[in-house]
Amino acid sequence: MATRTRRSQRRTQALSRERIVEAAVELLDAAGESGLTFRALTERLATGPGAVYWHVANKDELLGAATEGVVAAALAADPTEPAGSPQDGIRAVALGLAGAIEEHPWLATQLAVQLSRNPWGTVTARIFESIGRQVRALGVPESSWFTATSALLHYILGAAGQNAVNAGVPGPGTDREEFLGAVSTAWKELDPDDYPFTRAVADQMREHDDREQFLAGIDFVLTGITTLHPPAGRPGTPPASRETGTP
């Protein structure tokens, strides 16, 4: 009995939490959240359920760990890249998260879950910290740090998640250019009295680039932040006016 216990402990120790999370990400990428079961996980890892439960208590914990691991990798700074402006830092965070959501389609839903159900967790804090440090570096007054950072966070995750959904809408084997062309044509055929604006931008929709549009949206948000909340203490800069929204 003692020998069997020692062998079981060695197998449990050899199977690390990191490997379990890595296998969970692989299952999520292949089949989504419904495909992540402890049975599928133990089959992939060629082990018993006890060895997995030794490291992870339940599926919620496993999903949280998978989300945290992917987000940490997406936000990892490249030490070879020179430091840029705070705006560049925010764009880098945004593109890192957008790339992770595109690569791991399940991530958008899990980030929404983490932000709503576990706002005190490390996933939310890691993203908020990454954006917030750049907001602070912009010179935004401290009283506006939370609001400005929240606005950027919600735009980045919302737009990145929607772009990931859009990427899969045409379906396998469907050309994106042809799909957008068909939508553009349909918009142009709408009633001109009911949809004058939509008809007017039909060609722009067909020719748009998701990445450029995503970054343009961030620039809109940043322009609004720095216009309404100019750097505190900047010589010759009066406080922003709440009534007019102008400095």
Rank of each mutant, 00 (worst) to 15 (best):
R10D: 12
R10K: 05
A14V: 13
A14M: 10
A14I: 11
L15V: 09
S16G: 12
R19K: 14
R19G: 10
I20V: 14
V21M: 07
V21T: 08
A24D: 06
E26K: 12
L27F: 02
L27Y: 01
D29L: 08
D29N: 15
A30E: 14
A31G: 03
A31T: 02
E33C: 08
E33I: 15
L36W: 11
T37H: 10
T37P: 12
F38L: 10
F38V: 15
R39M: 04
A40Y: 01
A40P: 04
E43M: 12
E43P: 01
E43L: 08
L45D: 01
A46F: 05
A46L: 07
G48L: 05
P49W: 09
P49C: 02
A51C: 06
A51V: 06
A51Q: 11
A51P: 13
W54L: 14
N58K: 03
D60H: 05
D60Y: 04
D60G: 09
E61K: 11
L63D: 00
L63M: 09
L63C: 06
G64L: 00
G64I: 01
T67V: 11
T67N: 07
G69S: 14
A74H: 00
L75K: 15
L75G: 13
L75T: 15
L75N: 14
A76W: 07
D78P: 05
P79V: 06
P79S: 05
T80S: 15
P82V: 14
A83L: 07
A83R: 13
G84Q: 00
S85C: 12
Q87V: 14
D88C: 02
D88E: 15
G89A: 01
I90P: 13
R91N: 06
A92W: 07
V93P: 06
V93D: 03
A94Y: 04
A94M: 07
G96E: 03
G96S: 04
L97Y: 09
L97I: 14
G99V: 01
G99F: 02
A100Q: 03
E103F: 00
